[in-house]
């Protein structure tokens, strides 16, 4: 992979983040309780307002002064203070909630990528076969289900009904647990939420991988591989799959923003103490600084994930690597 390619992608990622920060600035100026609005209070004297404006730098032009100041404090991790969490810096509040969400999405994605790509490749390779008909129908159904719609029946059946798994939360409260016991407890709490996220993703990934394989199947180099008399499984594994995988890398990364949004709903259903639950609390309390920080964190993470995907793509595709 050329340094030029990596550099170009890095510049793109940084520009995107700059744009996100700028967008955040616009939101910040628009939102209720913004300094612009606070100064519209009729009970305040013009002199007082002018003094306050000067004190907070609001007398300076929006661009570039105020925007730059905003960007600098964002870069320094100063995103303001939470309303709901009584003045705690939002960065701390968000950091506490990020871990459980990363755990949930990470495991869900890992399972979905392996199972979804495998399922899609098998379906597309034997289009119209039994596996394709069943697999593709199931995938379409899961694709059509928001994660919380998958999660709710899971709770009713496996938690409330059969009692195999806890209905909510990440840990069982109380009691001293050894490390092994704590890990087992966490695992039991993870099963259902991860299943909900993974099932939804498997549906999406297998549909996309299927269409990618179907398209790859008609490429000339597949005819070449067949002409070579290679076993069918080998044609799939070493000729069709590596090529069909390429568009999937980009799609999986682009899709991450939606996965996060979906994970928010899954967290609500399972009362999972991550960013999703925090988002709902912030929304209920109209805690805008907190909402902004959550948006910024998720947006920047997604941009970085896309940058990582570009690097992986470059590694997988020699045409980019060169």
């Amino acid at each position: 992979m050329s340094a030029h390619y990596i550099l170009r992608k890095l510049v793109q990622a940084i520009l995107t983040i700059v744009a996100i920060v700028a967008l955040n600035f616009v939101l910040f100026r628009m939102m209720p309780g913004s300094p612009e609005r606070a100064t519209k209070n009729p009970h305040l004297t013009p002199e007082f307002i002018a003094a306050e404006r000067a004190k907070w730098g609001l007398d300076k032009p929006l661009f570039p002064d105020q925007l730059v100041a905003f960007a600098i404090s964002t870069a320094q991790g100063d995103l303001g203070y939470s309303i709901k969490y009584r003045g705690q810096p939002v960065v701390e509040v968000v950091a506490d909630a990020a871990g459980p969400t990363v755990l949930l999405i990470g495991i869900g994605e890992a399972i979905a990528i392996v199972v979804g790509l495998w399922l899609g490749a098998r379906s597309g390779w034997r289009r119209g076969g039994v596996m394709d008909r069943i697999g593709n129908s199931l995938s379409l159904i899961f694709y059509s289900m928001p994660y919380f719609v998958i999660g709710m029946p899971l709770i009713i059946i496996f938690a409330a009904g059969l009692g195999w798994f806890p209905t909510s939360g990440m840990t069982t409260p109380g009691g001293d647990k050894g490390p092994a016991e704590a890990l087992f407890d966490l695992g039991r709490h993870l099963v259902l939420p991860v299943t909900a996220v993974a099932l939804g993703l498997i549906g999406a990934y297998s549909i996309l991988m299927r269409s990618s394989i179907v398209e790859t199947r008609s490429e000339d180099y597949i005819t070449t591989a067949r002409a070579k008399g290679l076993p069918d499984a080998l044609v799939l594994r070493s000729h069709a799959f590596p090529n069909a995988l390429l568009p999937m890398v980009t799609l999986i990364a682009i899709n991450l923003g939606y996965v996060v949004a979906g994970a928010i709903t899954a967290e609500i259903v399972f009362n999972w103490p991550g960013l999703g639950l925090l988002t709902v609390q912030a929304l209920d309390a109209r805690d805008y600084p907190l909402l902004q920080a959550i948006f910024l964190l998720i947006a920047v993470s997604v941009v970085f994930a896309n940058f990582a995907a570009d690097i992986v793509y470059g590694y997988l595709d020699p045409r980019v690597r060169a």
């Binding site: 490429e219 000339d220 180099y221 005819t223 070449t224 591989a225 067949r226 002409a227 070579k228 008399g229 290679l230 076993p231 070493s238 000729h239 590596p242 090529n243 390429l246 997988l316 595709d317 020699p318 045409r319």
Partner: peptide, 23 residues
């Protein structure tokens, strides 16, 4: 499959598409 390539092989038109781009 026994006869493909070992008995009858093919030079395809436009080798860019006939060769696998990632191998």
């Amino acid at each position: 499959a026994r006869y493909r390539w070992r008995e009858i092989s093919i030079v395809f038109q436009g080798a860019m598409n006939a060769l696998n781009p990632v191998r």
